[in-house]
């Protein structure tokens, strides 16, 4: 996995709450058996005026000029500023894959849906929870200034604005450690293979029915 230590980038404001994973990447694109190539279909139904189809050349499609990512000032954004309960709905990891493929590295919101939040960390994407009033302030500053950028430091757990104002954020130690070092967490878990086998042996004694095949 790609490591994440620090990132500085342009901020795009997505001013609506409860953005669901169907909105982030609609179902027709989930038919791919790959992890890449979802970027052109990120927010497909908001971004284009027509109905998107898999394997289509998106450069020829009519754009919705009102959508933030179609506006020149946000086209190269890598920090997504969002509202509460971002990523609610399905467990599709295609949502973080699409955000990543578009070029996002950080998502900031007052709250995230659990499964989406978890999926981000598996893909080198950093979801940051900041208090509602701080998010409000960042929305105002983003809209006021063209090319507004934020600097995120995962080691220090801070988000810093262009004026030098800094906000701390919380993140689990394990997740932070994996992300900072780009660790493959399957490898980390397999270091405990012995413990897993011990657990299984015990369970076979106490709950043998869990190891039955069907008949």
């Amino acid at each position: 996995m790609r490591a994440f230590t620090q990132h500085q980038g342009i901020v795009a404001p997505m001013d609506r709450s409860n953005v669901d994973t169907d909105m982030i990447i609609p179902k027709q694109f989930l038919k791919s058996i790959k992890r890449t190539g979802f970027g052109p279909n990120l927010f497909d139904e908001l971004r284009y005026l027509d109905e998107g189809k898999p394997d289509q050349d998106c450069s020829q499609r009519p754009l919705n000029p009102d959508f933030i990512l179609n506006q020149d000032r946000y086209k190269n954004a890598s920090v997504l500023l969002a509202r509460s309960n971002f990523g609610c709905g399905s467990s599709r990891e295609h949502a973080p894959w699409a955000l990543d493929d578009f070029g996002f590295r950080v998502i900031i919101a007052p709250s995230f849906a659990d499964i989406f939040y978890n999926n981000c960390f598996k893909n080198g994407l950093l979801p940051i929870v900041l208090p509602e009033e701080v998010v409000d302030q960042l929305f105002r500053e983003t809209e006021e200034k063209d090319g507004y950028q934020l600097t995120v430091d995962l080691e220090a757990k801070t988000v810093t604005t262009p004026s030098g104002e800094s906000f701390g954020f919380d993140v689990d130690d394990f997740r932070r450690h994996c992300l900072l070092n780009g660790l493959d967490d399957i490898g980390v878990t397999l270091e405990d293979a012995e413990l897993i086998r011990d657990y299984e042996e015990k369970r076979k004694q106490t709950a043998p029915w869990l190891f039955n095949a069907g008949n």
Binding site: R35, S90, S91, R92, E93, P96, I115, N118, N119, K122, N123, D172, F174, D185, I186, T189, L190, A193, I196, E200
Partner: peptide, 20 residues
């Protein structure tokens, strides 16, 4: 509970999940 694809792979490979 539901999990993402990276965790599907994690469970296939280790029969475990990292959880809080």
């Amino acid at each position: 509970h539901g999990i993402g694809t990276s965790e599907v792979e994690h469970v296939l490979a280790t029969q475990c999940l990292v959880q809080k």
